[in-house]
Design a binder for these strands. Structure first.
Length: 156
DNA sequence: GCCAACGTTGGC
DNA sequence: GCCAACGTTGGC
């Protein structure tokens, strides 16, 4: 049984769900992801205990604001079945769910935000292919290497 | 609020 | 299976 920890970055708009919200609730089902690539990472690759960089997007200072851990294996995102939800998907059925999520558990808030601005200045060390700083990237869930993880948190 | 980038949808 | 139209993301 391999328990080697993997690392991820997960984006959230703080107006919708912030690191403070996660701290308050402790654990949260990461619902609303409606992108196949992001879904596949959660469904096929995430393991309990994996590390998560919590990123605030679409806000005044976008950047990494905390860390979390993956707290469950993937299971169907209940909001896809709920006609009243913004995330309702009429093509999904309980027999054949289309969207999956994992639970995410609060670990800690960073002492300060590691801003996107600053992260960009470390493109050389992080690798130009790092999804966060690749131009036009919109993925909200993607893998981070152990080296990138260390490098990013060392900026704190 | 603008708009570039890009994923998805659906007509053909 | 192409691709134009459309919707969304997210930095600025």
């Amino acid at each position: 049984m391999s328990l080697r920890r993997r690392y991820w970055l997960m984006k959230s708009e703080p107006d919708a769900f912030s690191i403070d919200d996660l701290q308050r609730v402790g654990t949260e089902p990461w619902n609303g992801v409606r992108n196949y690539q992001a879904r596949n990472f959660m469904r096929d690759q995430m393991q309990v205990g994996d590390g998560v960089l919590f990123y605030h997007s679409n806000c005044v200072v976008p950047g990494i604001v905390g860390t979390a851990t993956v707290a469950s294996r993937a299971y169907p995102d209940a909001t896809q079945f709920d006609p009243k939800s913004d995330y309702y998907d009429p093509k999904a059925t309980r027999e054949e769910p289309r969207w999956f999520l994992v639970d995410v558990a609060f670990e800690r808030k960073l002492r300060r935000t590691i801003a996107l601005d600053e992260i960009k200045q470390h493109a050389d060390a992080l690798g130009e292919e790092f999804a966060l700083i690749r131009r036009g990237n919109r993925l909200s869930v993607f893998p981070v290497s152990a080296t990138q993880w260390k490098h990013l948190l060392a900026l704190e």
